[in-house]
Structure formats: structure tokens, C-alpha cells
């Protein structure tokens, strides 16, 4: 990796992360508790504590183009264990939003799943499993993914062709409208 010139660090990036997450980056003293407990660290390219450090150093490109922020499951182990009560998972979330906005999408399948999920909720007011699955498969071309789950899910009545009906689904659509400028498409 290239050397960072400290004075050229992107303080706006750090400030934006702080503003959007409501967290204070300076409070992180790099103890490493977040990384220690992270169940997805095995798949990460940058451990979460290092992401925190790079945000402190204003390294926009490195952070937004990493894979880890897409692989975070928001399990919040990091948040729970942070000795300074920093909501680390929230910061990961914000970073993912910022990566989407700036076109840094390192895990297309994760984005495709999120898009399918949100499209389904937006359309019917609540989750429609078959809709999400089809949407995901259409977006990714992975038609056989998780095919082994179909039989179990059918037998448990989880895969209905018709979306589940719901009262006032238009109000959910309203939420999406309100949030439109933000995350979705």
C-alpha cells in the first residue's frame, strides 16, 4: 500500500461518517474488541478495527472500496463490546450506504439481495420470499442458489406464490418515498 500523507487525509469523510452515524471517531482507542468478536472476520479483507482506524485517518477510497463493509451482518457484536460505547455496526452501515452512493460496490450479490429485499417490501409492504428469491436470481443469474432449501420451505409453507396480504401497505410505500433520496436506487 502507498504511504498516507497525514495532512492530506480526507477529514470531510471522517466528519461525514461521524455526522451520519452519530458516533465520535476520536473515542476509538483501537483496543481491537470489535475485531476480536466479529463472526465474519474470516471473510473480511479489512478487519473492522482497521476500518475504524482508516476512517480516523480519513482514507475514503480504501474504506469505501473494501469488501468487509458488505459482508458485515450487522450482528452488533462489535457495538455490544465496544468499551467506548461506539456503535461500530452503525458505522459499518453508514459506510455501506456511502459506498453505494459513490458507486463502490464490491459485493454485487450482497447488493442484489438487499435490492431484492427492499423492492419486495416496497411493493407489498412486507417480505415476500418468492419475490425476493426471484428478484435476487434475476439480478444475479444464480438460478440454482439455495435450491436445496426449496423442499423444506415449501413443506413449512414459507414459499407462497402470492404475496402475503397486509393492511395499509401504502403507508410502507410512503416510508420509501420519504427516504427516496437516500439509499434505494
Amino acid at each position: 500500500m502507498q504511504a498516507i500523507t497525514i495532512q492530506e487525509q480526507d477529514n470531510d469523510f471522517r466528519a461525514e461518517v461521524e455526522r451520519r452515524s452519530g458516533q465520535s471517531m476520536v473515542e476509538c482507542y483501537q483496543c481491537g474488541n470489535c475485531t476480536a468478536g466479529c463472526p465474519f472476520d474470516f471473510a473480511y479483507d479489512l478487519p473492522v478495527s482497521k476500518i475504524m482506524r482508516l476512517v480516523q485517518l480519513g482514507q475514503r477510497e480504501i474504506v469505501l472500496s473494501c469488501h468487509s463493509i458488505w459482508l458485515c451482518a450487522s450482528c452488533k457484536t462489535c457495538t455490544t463490546r465496544c468499551p467506548n460505547s461506539i456503535d461500530v455496526a452503525k458505522i459499518m452501515d453508514v459506510l455501506r450506504h456511502m459506498a453505494r452512493e459513490s458507486g463502490h460496490i464490491k459485493e454485487r450479490t450482497v447488493k442484489a439481495f438487499e435490492d431484492s429485499f427492499l423492492a419486495s417490501v416496497k411493493k407489498t409492504g412486507r417480505l415476500h420470499e418468492v419475490g425476493v428469491a426471484l428478484g435476487y436470481e434475476m439480478r444475479t443469474g444464480r438460478f440454482l442458489t439455495d435450491i436445496d432449501l426449496v423442499q423444506t420451505m415449501v413443506s413449512k409453507g414459507k414459499l407462497s406464490i402470492k404475496p402475503h396480504s397486509m393492511h395499509n401497505s401504502d403507508q410502507v410505500a410512503e416510508i420509501f418515498k420519504r427516504f427516496n433520496g437516500g439509499i434505494h436506487e
Binding site: 500500500m1 504511504a3 498516507i4 500523507t5 497525514i6 478495527s49 482497521k50
Partner: peptide, 10 residues
């Protein structure tokens, strides 16, 4: 910066 795992310059 060993926490970032990078060289730094000031």
C-alpha cells in the same frame, strides 16, 4: 501507522 497497517508521512 501499525493500526492502519500503512506507512504515513507528515
Amino acid at each position: 501507522d501499525t493500526l492502519a497497517g500503512m506507512q504515513v508521512e507528515i
